[in-house]
Design a binder for these strands. Structure first.
Length: 302
DNA sequence: ATCGGTACCTGCACGC
DNA sequence: TGCGTGCAGGTACCGA
């Protein structure tokens, strides 16, 4: 769920209440819930739960930033294990970091409760589907270096150069975090619509002019989405519980069968790279000879 | 290199 | 009301 704009808003809303604060206690309410062999946290927490708790307690938050869809929290550890710590949080599809006041009843699927040295403030991590991840390490995990450039920072030149090198369909490329980091299903579809590019177009076959339009569309889409607080499709909210508004200006995502706001054609849904892909068949035409092979007669493209 | 399928999970909307 | 089905913002892994 949370893509770059949502994660960016979570990070921004975490900063004021988290930077400079000390974590005084860490509780893991779902630890051991499904029996010792299958604890809920096993998949969520990289490393042992005890080490996680021990190393984090007493740590003071130094900084927090976004890297693609990852949240990186740097802490100054306390006591014998002094030195710096890096807590990586990936929200997966349904992960949520949210400030809470303790007397409220615990929401279901709350896996980690960080007690802060600010009175009446706790930070809860919840994640119903448990696709999220928490990884505590001494240094920044090496894996994040494998991710591609940030789409808001990449230059036009580099973006076009990367496109030229890849023969995958452009929608698949946008979802590939090694191509650019931070785009997900919503913003890939919305960016392609804004650039009037068919999602099945082959990256290396896009002319420079179209590549430039895509580069521009991605940046404009992400900037506007960040501005509007992200897309709140079902339950996304920032750390202070504020919803986003970008879903109200979605042009194609989640609009299968509805009329295109530009031309009135019906928005179509196809599957690319195993993901639902929404586009306007009239505004996003396949370029003859420049796209993936056409569907054979009698073959269904759904 | 790239793709499709599967897996990981729970919740929700839908049709019957 | 209940039940089965398909779908959902994520990534990782397999074999082809």
């Amino acid at each position: 769920m949370p893509e770059l704009p949502e994660v960016e808003n979570v990070v921004r809303s975490l900063r004021p209440g988290l930077v400079g604060r000390q974590i005084t206690e860490v509780e893991l309410p779902t630890y051991g819930q499904n029996g010792p062999g299958r604890t809920v946290l096993r998949r969520l927490l990289v490393g042992s739960t005890n080490a996680f708790r021990k190393r984090l307690c007493g740590g003071r938050v130094v900084s927090i930033r976004r890297h693609g869809k990852n949240i990186l929290i740097t802490l100054q550890a306390q006591g014998a294990g002094h030195g710096s710590l890096c807590l990586l949080v990936h929200l997966g599809m349904t992960g949520r970091l949210r400030f809470e006041s303790m007397p409220e009843p615990l929401r279901p699927h709350t896996h980690v409760i960080f007690t802060l040295d600010a009175p009446g403030r706790w930070l809860h991590f919840s994640d119903p589907r448990r696709f999220g991840k928490l990884h505590l390490s001494k240094d920044e995990p090496a894996e994040i270096q494998l991710l591609g450039p940030d789409p808001l920072e990449i230059s036009l030149e580099e973006f076009c150069a990367r496109l030229r090198r890849r023969r995958a369909r452009v929608k698949a490329l946008l979802l590939d975090q090694r191509f650019v980091r931070g785009l997900g299903n919503i913003y890939a579809d919305e960016s392609l619509f804004r650039a009037s590019i068919h999602p099945a177009a082959i990256g290396s076959r896009l002319r420079r002019e179209r590549g430039a339009r895509l580069w521009d569309a991605i940046r404009a889409t992400l900037r506007q989405a960040i501005e509007l607080g992200g897309s709140s499709i079902s339950s996304y909210m920032d750390a202070e519980g504020r919803a986003g508004w970008f879903q109200q200006v979605h042009q194609v995502y989640g609009r299968t069968g509805e009329e295109c706001f530009e031309c009135g054609s019906l928005i179509r849904r196809i599957v690319i790279a195993g993901r639902s892909t929404h586009f306007c068949p009239a505004c996003q035409r396949q370029q003859r000879g420049r796209t993936a092979k056409k569907t054979k007669p009698g073959e269904r493209s759904r």
